[in-house]
């Protein structure tokens, strides 16, 4: 697995690791209205040949509805070409995923 991209702003950092057709996106910081735009841009362009997309939220401290929109869009795309998982979500993030029903339709794992 190799790190092929790292982008960072003051409040969010994205590292992408590619291993054949598996892409792991490790995110740090906050996924809010502003940074979700960056996240979508950074990932959407790289998943054409991916059949396993993993979002590692181990160092994510906050997600807003804008993040949910990104995950839903990615999930929709990946449903047609493989699978998508969200891992290492802390309890606050899990609260959001649970109340919105995302845990019912996505493969989401608590830290």
């Amino acid at each position: 697995m190799r790190l092929f991209l790292k982008t960072a702003s003051k409040i969010m950092e994205i590292k992408k690791f590619l291993n054949d057709a598996k892409l792991t996106v490790k995110i740090s910081g906050r996924i809010d209205t502003n940074t979700s735009i960056q996240l979508k841009k950074e990932v959407m362009g790289d998943i054409e040949d991916i059949n396993n997309l993993i979002f590692d939220l181990d160092e994510v401290t906050y997600i807003s509805s804008a993040a949910l929109r990104v995950f839903l869009a990615m999930g929709n795309t990946m449903q047609q070409q493989g699978k998508m998982s969200i891992i290492n979500a802390n309890s606050d993030l899990m609260d959001v995923f649970k109340v919105t029903g995302f845990t019912e339709i996505m493969d989401i794992h608590e830290k």
Binding site: S65, R69, L72, G75, N76, T100, G101, F102, I105, M106
Partner: peptide, 12 residues
């Protein structure tokens, strides 16, 4: 609830 994976992403 639960959402559909292919629904319009707004409303949350």
């Amino acid at each position: 609830y639960p959402p559909k994976i292919n629904q319009p992403p707004g409303g949350y």
